Amino acid sequence: MTISEEYVDFAAREAHGVSPAYERLALAVSRDHGLLALLATVPPAKRQPNLLFGVVRFLGGPVGDPAAFADYAVANWPAVEALLRTRATQTNEAGRCAVLLPVLAALPQPLALLEVGASAGLCLFPDRYAYRYGEHVVGSGEPVLDCAASGMRPPAVLPEVVWRAGLDLNPLDVTDPADVAWLDALIWPEHTHRRARLRAAAAVAAADPPLLVRGDVVDDLPALAAQAPAGATLVVFHSSVMFYVPTPRRRAFAEVVRGLPGHWVANESPGVLPYETLPTPPGVALHNVLALDGTPLAWTRPHGQEIIWFAEAFLRPRVTEPPHVID
């Protein structure tokens, strides 16, 4: 797609019905030849809407008015470009734990968790948060993660985690105000509940920091996985990360992770990882595919607000009431 088409696609599939402000901004940028020309000067991976909008928010620029946003971005392009090149969309959304939990809770316990693309490691604490699947509540901590669930029975218990580690090209530190400010800037403007969730999850991580290692998803994964304690089920997992990894490296990663002991849990957009068959996506909004060891299990929404189970095996799900989507 062209840069303009990428912004139109983002508006329609990701922001529509979720963030009116970002939907307006994305459509405005798609028609702004000046901004599109500036975006063309940075590498393709640095042109994405989430990153541009987050950088402007981080710098204190306006995101509520498209014209003011464009004026600010153009007038401050050297600063915007510098952050585009050095920062990444490390959206560390703890809410994604709600769609990972059904798989994690069903695996042999206890677990040794290893997240690829861990950012600040907030998704490494699925055992410390509380969850609300409609009327069904699991756990008692903070934050409480709301998730609409259909086609499955929500988990009854939290997993037992005895080791947690993350691998990232640029790990973030929840005790560093600048890193937390960057995570905050990546949260979409209207999502005050996600901002509160970030603060609560950051407090959990800061109280018991996980092992975060700076490294490559292929080259450095085996050595980190080897540190997992004996007697625990190793689970290598990732959410909305592989899109940013070049296709040849994705294949290499899949080969490496399949060769490790334990299990592989992927939560990525369709097309990022190859699957033989997938059911029709539920609507035009962007959904991820939740998979275990290469087998697709469910559709999920990117921030963990919904899971739609379609697999017949593994958890033997039963059909529940239609989901109420929580954005």
Rank of each mutant, 00 (worst) to 15 (best):
M1T: 10
S4K: 04
E6Q: 15
D9E: 14
E14W: 15
A15K: 07
A26K: 08
S30A: 15
R31P: 06
D32L: 08
D32V: 06
L35R: 12
V42H: 13
P43C: 14
N50Y: 14
L51D: 03
L51V: 07
L52C: 05
L52N: 06
V55I: 07
V56I: 02
G61I: 00
V63F: 04
V74K: 14
V74C: 09
W77Q: 11
P78F: 04
A79G: 03
V80C: 03
V80T: 04
A82Y: 02
A82T: 02
L83E: 09
L83V: 02
T86R: 09
R87C: 02
R87L: 01
A88S: 15
A88F: 14
Q90S: 00
A94Q: 06
A94M: 06
G95T: 03
P102C: 06
P102M: 01
L107W: 00
P108G: 11
A112W: 11
L113V: 07
L114I: 12
L114S: 01
E115R: 02
E115M: 05
A120H: 09
L122T: 12
L124G: 07
F125N: 10
P126M: 09
S140F: 05
E142Q: 15
P143A: 09
L145N: 00
A148W: 00
M152Q: 10
P154A: 13
P154E: 10
A156M: 03
V157K: 07
E160N: 09
W163E: 02
A165P: 02
L167C: 09
P171N: 03
P171W: 01
P171L: 00
V174F: 01
T175I: 00
V180Q: 01
W182E: 03
W188N: 11
H191M: 12
T192D: 13
A196W: 00
R197Q: 02
L198T: 05
R199H: 11
V204K: 06
A205Y: 00
D208I: 05
P210D: 08
G215V: 04
G215E: 06
D216K: 02
D220R: 07
P222H: 04
A225P: 12
P229M: 05
H238V: 13
H238C: 12
S240P: 09
M242C: 14
M242P: 06
M242E: 09
F243N: 08
F243D: 04
V245C: 10
P248G: 11
R250M: 01
R250C: 00
V256P: 09
V256T: 13
V257R: 13
V257D: 06
H263Y: 06
A266V: 12
G271P: 12
Y275K: 05
E276D: 15
T277Q: 15
T277Y: 09
P279N: 06
P279I: 07
N288S: 14
N288K: 11
V289M: 07
L290S: 12
D293L: 01
D293P: 04
D293V: 01
W299H: 13
W299A: 13
W299T: 14
R301C: 02
R301Q: 13
H303G: 11
I307A: 14
F314L: 15
L315Y: 11
R316D: 15
R316L: 14
P323L: 05
P323G: 10
D327M: 12
